[in-house]
Computed example of a mutant assay.
Amino acid sequence: MAVYRCSNTVIGYLNLLTLLASIPIIGGGLWLARSSATCESLLQTPLLVLGFVVLLVSLAGFVGACFNVAWALWLFLLVILLLIAALLGITVFGFAVTGGGGGVQVPGRMYREYHLEDYSRWLRRRITEDRYWRAARTCVVGSKACAKIALWTPMDYLQRDLTPIQVTTHDRIKR
């Protein structure tokens, strides 16, 4: 009986911590609602959903552990299992579509070049479709990631370090 009580206490404290951690996640989603930048507004809904899911799951685990509510613990375990499976699926999907796309070092340059041919056919089709690139282009322009590059000399391109988004945007603009 002591092990059961200790286990529930540990689960209760862990869920209390995740319950408290969900508050800044939800706050971050609400803070992004104030922003007018396209990139940040794309993250608002997923961040709010994630925050509320963490809040509800940890609340179910907390109630189940602290007040011995068996159905709440079962719900908690089922949702945790589904979340782990979803994260595993997203991770495998991410590796599958981006595998081999690490970029190549260009001799005499400080940055790597990234080519669409190195990525999966599915990702290449999505990126080359104008409706997807339009959203990405709006996001990049709105973030001012390339604002300093406009003032560079040709020699700067050979000597400075470019981020992957700057290389990709620069190559896309050249075409």
Rank of each mutant, 00 (worst) to 15 (best):
V3N: 12
R5G: 11
V10G: 02
I11N: 02
L17H: 06
T18M: 15
L19K: 03
L19D: 05
L20F: 13
S22Q: 00
P24W: 00
G28K: 06
G28M: 12
A33K: 07
S36A: 14
C39R: 06
E40S: 14
L42D: 06
Q44I: 09
L48P: 01
G51W: 05
G51T: 01
V54G: 01
L56C: 10
V63N: 04
A72N: 03
W74N: 11
F76V: 00
L81Y: 09
L83R: 03
I84A: 11
A85H: 04
L87P: 05
I90H: 06
I90R: 03
T91E: 05
G101K: 07
G102E: 14
G103S: 15
V106C: 07
P107Y: 09
G108A: 09
R109E: 06
E113R: 13
L123I: 11
E129L: 11
T138V: 11
V141I: 15
V141K: 08
A145N: 08
A147F: 12
K148I: 07
L151F: 15
T153E: 02
Y157P: 05
R160N: 01
L162Q: 00
I165H: 03
Q166N: 02
Q166D: 02
V167T: 10
V167E: 13
H170N: 10
D171R: 05
K174I: 09
R175T: 14
